[in-house]
Design a protein around this nucleic acid. Structure first.
Lengths: 207, 207, 207, 207
DNA sequence: AATGAATGAGTGTTCATTCAT
DNA sequence: GATGAATGAACACTCATTCAT
């Protein structure tokens, strides 16, 4: 009836976020029951409500915190870098690294967008667009300064993001390639093409 | 009490598949209730079971039929084309076109994989791998014949697929770019890079 | 859409009664679904209604037909026998024989009484009482004529019926005892006790 | 929205078992809906699941608890009695008394056997056989010590049990006969026959 | 006499959430 | 901060029954 000895508030909240993240990642938000979540945390379902307000709020919180951190860390990663080429390089390295490290958060940010109530949805989409605009801005700067040739700035940015984000779905830490190798390969593909023709100069063939 | 005049079996089944596809796309499989689905079709919830066996089977059917058709159409698109460059070009054009035309089917094939029971999951993943291997095969052929330079065949294939598939999330038929323009841009990005540096020829910079 | 070649009315009805009897015996009336019944017969559920009016009526019919036959056969078995002792003997032989041969009908007559709607229930209980009164009548005749000593006519009749009917639950045609042996044993137990004390004459001990 | 003041766990569970027993007795397990059960208890259907795991488990629990108690009480009733005649007498008295007192539990133990899932079925049948073997053991002891004459030990035991258990179906506490009178009559019928012939000594007639 | 598609009520069960303790 | 018992709505699914064909 009284609480389990040793448990306490902040620890419990942290356990809820951790278990929630894992369960939403593996089962999906709708499929995750709060009873299951509570069981993983080691408390009763009703006790969750000492820490969260609603299930929806837990989802939003997980996503919002992640998006905020993503944006903050990106700023840190780009801080002090001026040259568009260097900034693009830094963006790619950051994005790949972060998405490998936080694949679960990243995944639910994409897959559970539709589970967000409209107000929360708008906020998250806004944050995501902020992130996308950072990349578009880099490309635009490069184009404006005459350094980059880009077929279509927006399409390229979406292409880059889709390609890089895909790393979440297949990268294994213990696999054939290291994080650094992957980053290098992706950088090369972004800059020179994913599949190049050998004996005909790429420039001549360009549309 | 008996059936409404004019309704009939095959039409109802088609309506179920159509409404199911739309609802799963917009709400997700777990969030879609069969009552809602039935209401959209214009029948009672229980009547669905004259046409489907379970909710899970409806999902699997939608995905399976789509994957089968995807593979079949790809074969048609590549049929009679021998040169790796031409085959890659054809693959890209097919993939972009098909994914624009069937964005909902494509989306649920990715997003609802986790909602599939393990037996169904295995089947679908197997079909997906077949599709991926077609692309990897093209790349391998090109490399083997000395026509392609590819940093890493597998990573490149995953990169291409992620990049191209991303088209589903932003393409609007009435938007700025036509399907053909998008295909052209993507082809260029695959072959020469998404962001190239202007004054240094790509060839010279190639790894 | 048209009917299966070779099927026809009376045969189908007979198949329904046969399958219904078996299913009600093994699963119980409530637990038997008409879809299952139809499947066993080899038709669709809706087609049952060309032969039965309702599920309840099928149950009632099965029970009623059996009770009528039970009474009719009993009359045949007792026909022409006047002496109470002989009549009791004939009753026991008939009851055991019939209950072994029709164990499923007998079982559902007891176990599904509560599934009968009140009007049907009353009818069946009336028929059952008719049967019980036949036995009570035999006992009463024997007592009236000074041939029988019975502690309590009604209790004895219920006791005999319960004991004899129990044969349904354990008798196996291929078992240790033949139908005739079982009848003999039961007759003995009715007349002389189920467990007698050896060295003290039963008569002396009688209450 | 939360629970009604004054209600509490153990009381609710007891109310569920009581109402469940009554409803299964009157309607049968299949015919009893959990909504009806909940209504009788005064809670919502879903709230039942704070106390039971499944409907099947409630049935099994009711039966299992009864069988355990039946066996325990029988042991108490026979405790300290050595002579087979006395033990048989004690068994009859116990069985009749217990079955009159617990007619509903007894009834569902027989009638709802087929509603038990196979694992539960096996357990209950095992317990029932334990009970039957107690009686068979008494008869065997009596025969072994030369005190009893029994036509067939097993058939006699089944006959006794069927006959005595039948008391459940007709005994009325306010009826013509008291519990003690019924016990006396049954004992007499077991020992000396249900219907005896007056002028010919039973012993002489024995098979 | 059979089918297949429909109905509307019902099934056991799960859900997020509440709240007195 | 935790519990356990409650709510009321919802879930996927099954049911007996109907009827145009």
């Amino acid at each position: 009836m009284a609480r389990t000895v040793g448990s306490n508030g902040p620890k419990t909240m942290e356990a809820i976020r951790k278990a929630g993240l894992r369960l939403i990642y593996t089962q999906g938000y709708e499929a995750m029951s709060l009873r299951r979540l509570a069981a993983e945390v080691g408390i009763q379902a009703g006790s969750l409500y000492n820490h969260i307000t609603t299930k929806q709020d837990l989802l939003f919180d997980l996503i919002k915190v992640h998006m905020d951190e993503l944006l903050e860390r990106l700023d840190q990663a780009l801080d002090g870098i001026a040259d568009p080429e260097d900034r693009l390089q830094a963006f790619i390295a950051f994005h790949v690294g972060y998405h490998i490290a936080r694949k679960r958060e990243v995944f639910i940010c994409y897959s559970e967008l539709r589970s967000l109530e409209s107000k929360n949805y708008d906020i998250v989409v806004g944050l995501r667009q902020q992130y996308e605009r950072k990349l578009i801005g880099i490309l635009d700067d490069g184009v404006a300064s005459g350094r980059f040739t880009v077929a279509d700035t927006t399409v390229a940015a979406y292409g880059i993001l889709a390609m890089l984000t895909g790393v979440c779905t297949w990268f294994k830490p213990a696999g054939r390639l290291s994080k650094e190798e992957v980053t290098g390969i992706y950088t090369g593909m972004v800059r020179h093409g994913l599949v190049r023709t050998v004996d005909a100069p790429a420039v001549a063939e360009a549309t």
